[in-house]
Design a protein around this nucleic acid. Structure first.
Lengths: 89, 89
DNA sequence: CAAAATTATAGCACTTCTGCTATAACTATT
DNA sequence: AATAGTTATAGCAGAAGTGCTATAATTTTG
């Protein structure tokens, strides 16, 4: 007898927002003259992780963003200073 | 011969910021008269996840926060509208 | 107080994030 | 063009996020 197929889990991966976050990060980082490596080193994150975020390869955790904001010395809200679309309903 | 011990990975878990996020979320959610279950249902997240965030049990991903912000119809930056301590040093 | 509603906790399965290391692909700079 | 600097990609291992289900604890309501 066939097992009841579990409904496939819907992944939470908001590409729109992640793209906006990525470009905000690149913008702020570049403005401060940091390379990805500088940022990685100072924040204690890995270089690959910074690159993954900026190239929208992953969905980082908020603590990761906190680390970055601290290092860049900007409010966390600045990295999220963009509009995402409303729920379509 | 002893294997070189790998340096223990430092976990990224910013309790300070996560607490602030949690209280912001509770505040905004309550102000709009949503229960955790309402928010979970409308956002497509699980109730347990909302509870975990508000009780600072986990370090959510940014997409999760995007979902919540959309449902509550507030800018993402509003949920991060607080100050975290600067890097020491 | 009793019942209902809401929030919190727990364990499991599964997926994904993260660090690490190495390497490739770009981008200046000379 | 060659070199160095920077950014992007890839695979692995281990830690952690997430949904689901159930249940406990707490708060609100009658």
């Amino acid at each position: 007898m066939k097992k009841t197929k579990k409904s496939k889990r819907v992944l939470i991966y908001d590409e729109e927002g992640l793209k906006l976050l990525a470009s905000k990060l690149k913008e702020v980082r570049a403005k401060q003259g940091y390379t990805q490596e500088d940022l990685a080193y100072e924040s204690g994150l890995s270089l690959s992780q910074i690159a993954r975020i900026e190239t929208v390869k992953i969905n980082p955790t908020v603590s990761t963003i906190f680390c970055i904001a601290r290092t860049l010395d900007v409010p966390v809200s600045e990295l999220f200073d963009f509009k995402i679309s409303k729920k379509t309903k």
